Simulated scan of single mutants.
Amino acid sequence: MVSAEPDPQRFRDLMVGGEPGFEGVMTCVFGIQTHESRTYLILLENPGSTVAELADKMERDRSNVNRSLATLLDKGLAMRERRLLDGGGHVYQYTATDLPEARELMHKTLDEWAAYVHNRIDEFGEETQA
């Protein structure tokens, strides 16, 4: 599920820091870590990857990749499918949400956050008037 909680400090940094790149905007809007946005980009280039494959490509520990994937799944930026192995058992394969849909999620999340901030602005001073 998409969370409407971009990081305010990251938002300020993004606005002051010059021309933001996709990865910077993604970390700001979704409130995720840089390594999580990097995981998304690697996954976008390598659909159907397993945790082990991603860990090798990213040179990161599998447990860290698992946490990044959990965040991406939670934000709607990745999908997971279970594939049965010929010798028994199964493995999970991950695919990034396609770029047009990810951009739409970014717009939606930012719009929700902006609406929340606008409501908070409108509430300022109401406590003292009551």
Rank of each mutant, 00 (worst) to 15 (best):
S3D: 13
P6W: 04
D7Y: 02
D7S: 12
Q9T: 07
Q9M: 10
R10M: 08
R10S: 10
D13I: 03
L14Q: 01
L14R: 00
M15V: 08
M15N: 10
V16D: 08
G18N: 05
E19K: 06
E19F: 03
P20T: 01
P20K: 02
P20F: 02
G21V: 02
F22H: 06
E23M: 07
G24F: 02
M26E: 04
C28I: 02
C28V: 10
F30E: 00
F30G: 02
F30Y: 11
G31D: 09
G31W: 05
I32W: 03
Q33E: 08
Q33T: 12
E36A: 15
S37L: 02
S37W: 00
R38W: 05
T39L: 09
T39H: 09
Y40F: 13
Y40H: 14
Y40C: 03
I42W: 05
L43A: 14
L44A: 15
L44P: 03
E45H: 11
P47M: 07
P47R: 06
P47V: 09
G48S: 07
G48A: 04
S49I: 02
V51G: 06
V51I: 15
A52Y: 04
A52Q: 13
E53M: 10
E53L: 08
L54K: 02
A55H: 09
A55F: 09
A55R: 05
R62Q: 14
S63K: 06
S63I: 12
N64V: 14
V65C: 07
V65M: 03
V65Q: 05
S68C: 13
A70N: 12
L72R: 02
L72Y: 00
L73C: 00
L73M: 13
D74Y: 11
D74M: 12
K75V: 09
K75W: 10
L77N: 04
A78Y: 00
A78H: 03
A78G: 01
M79G: 03
M79F: 03
M79R: 03
R80T: 04
R82M: 12
R82T: 14
R83L: 04
R83G: 05
L85W: 01
D86P: 14
G87Q: 07
G87C: 08
G89P: 07
G89C: 05
G89V: 06
H90I: 00
H90F: 04
H90S: 14
Y92N: 15
Y92K: 04
Y92G: 14
Q93P: 01
T95S: 04
T95N: 01
T95C: 00
A96H: 09
T97R: 10
T97I: 05
L99R: 12
P100K: 13
P100A: 02
P100S: 09
R103N: 08
R103P: 03
R103V: 14
E104D: 13
E104N: 05
E104T: 13
L105Y: 15
M106E: 00
H107S: 10
H107G: 04
H107K: 12
D111L: 06
D111F: 12
E112W: 05
E112C: 11
E112H: 06
W113Y: 14
A114R: 07
A114S: 09
A114Y: 06
Y116G: 15
V117F: 06
V117M: 08
N119R: 11
N119Q: 11
I121A: 11
D122C: 09
D122V: 13
D122R: 15
D122F: 07
F124A: 11
G125C: 09
A130Q: 08
A130D: 07
